[in-house]
Design a protein around this nucleic acid. Structure first.
Length: 321
DNA sequence: CTTAGGGCTATTG
DNA sequence: CAATAGCCCTAAG
């Protein structure tokens, strides 16, 4: 009676995604019970989670509704018994444009639905305006989700992960590169395990969602950088898209950036002793990386990059919160 | 008790 | 009208 269908909110969806990233698909009860997600999922049963996941993944798949085409309801007889349901599976041209959530693009003023529907994931609500971390967490979440969904016993290689994510979300041009950077970081943080060229989730990892840092206040942040790093190729028309283009271009020939990444990696390695220091190192790493990209666009010199590194090292000494 | 999968139906475009 | 999203039901482990 009093059951007018409860639409899923973006918070619930996000909690579910993160839950799957942490526990894996099929662990619906675990996800529902997990104190981390429970607050968002109090109104949902494990069955609801399963059903919702089914809906989310099939519509993101570009595949037809729920695996079996239900256009022919209730009279499915006289069908070819087997060897007939060849799912296309190949590269879907336009992977369901309904998911405007896409990749973390820091300024998403593009197409906000008038009624504020649940189509745009509100990470910002979770991470208090820290865009850098929010992008990082997005990558982590997608990686864990991909691995736990793909469930390959020997792990999945970069291509598999890339195509998994590509099928569900819009990705930037240099996505593969960014992703492998993230993968390497996760390996060095002992959250992933690399065998051959494949990545596996290390057991005993409390996954990406746990990396949220409540201590970071938006007001303390230097104000997010204006650059729009992520854009789809189809979106490259305005100056923002143009900037993204230049960034990608610059990145390709930017050995300097690679050096800086290594440097940042070393810093984070040293800081790995304590959680808070690690967090700090991540901050610095991401900031450095972002700054470098921006700098490249402005045709900066090695020299100024060095200076930037120094500035950031100084920044390390200052209390973050 | 939980999960996977099929089915039903109100809602949406 | 068809497609979809949320729920329900049931078999299987």
């Amino acid at each position: 009676m009093g059951n007018p269908k409860q639409k899923w909110t973006s918070e619930e969806e996000e909690a579910l995604r993160a839950g799957v990233a942490k526990h894996g698909t099929g662990k619906w009860k675990d996800i529902q019970r997990d104190p981390e997600f429970n607050p968002y999922l109090v109104n949902r049963s494990n069955i609801d989670l399963k059903d919702k996941w089914r809906n989310m993944s099939c519509s993101a798949n570009g595949q037809g509704p729920r695996e079996k085409s239900r256009t022919v309801k209730a009279k499915a007889n006289s069908d070819a018994p087997a060897s007939q349901v060849s799912t296309p599976q190949t590269a879907v041209p336009a992977p369901a444009a309904r998911d405007s959530a896409a990749v973390p693009s820091t300024d998403d003023s593009s197409k906000a639905l008038p009624d504020g529907k649940n189509s745009s994931i509100d990470y910002a609500g979770y991470f208090s305006g820290n865009f850098v971390e929010y992008e990082m967490v997005w990558y982590n979440t997608m990686i864990f989700e991909a691995l736990s969904t793909l469930k390959e016993p020997n792990g999945s290689d970069t291509s598999a992960i890339v195509s998994y994510i590509e099928q569900r979300h819009e990705v930037p041009q240099n996505f593969r590169r960014l992703l492998s950077t993230r993968l390497r970081r996760l390996v060095s943080q002992d959250k992933l395990e690399k065998v051959q060229n494949c990545y596996k989730v290390k057991s005993n990892v409390d996954a990406s969602f746990g990396t949220k840092t409540p201590a970071l206040k938006a007001e303390n942040q230097p104000r997010p950088l204006q650059t729009t790093v992520y854009r789809t190729t189809t979106d490259v028309v305005d100056e923002a898209g143009n900037a993204a283009y230049k960034i990608a271009e610059a990145e390709n020939k930017s050995f300097v950036a690679a050096e800086a990444v290594k440097e940042a990696d070393r810093i984070s390695e040293m800081a790995e002793d304590t959680e808070s220091l690690l967090q700090l190192a991540k901050e610095i790493f991401e900031k450095l990386f972002l700054t470098l990209q921006v700098r490249r666009v402005n045709a900066c010199t090695q020299h100024s990059i060095r200076a930037e590194s120094h500035a950031l090292l100084i920044f390390e000494n200052e209390p973050l919160y």
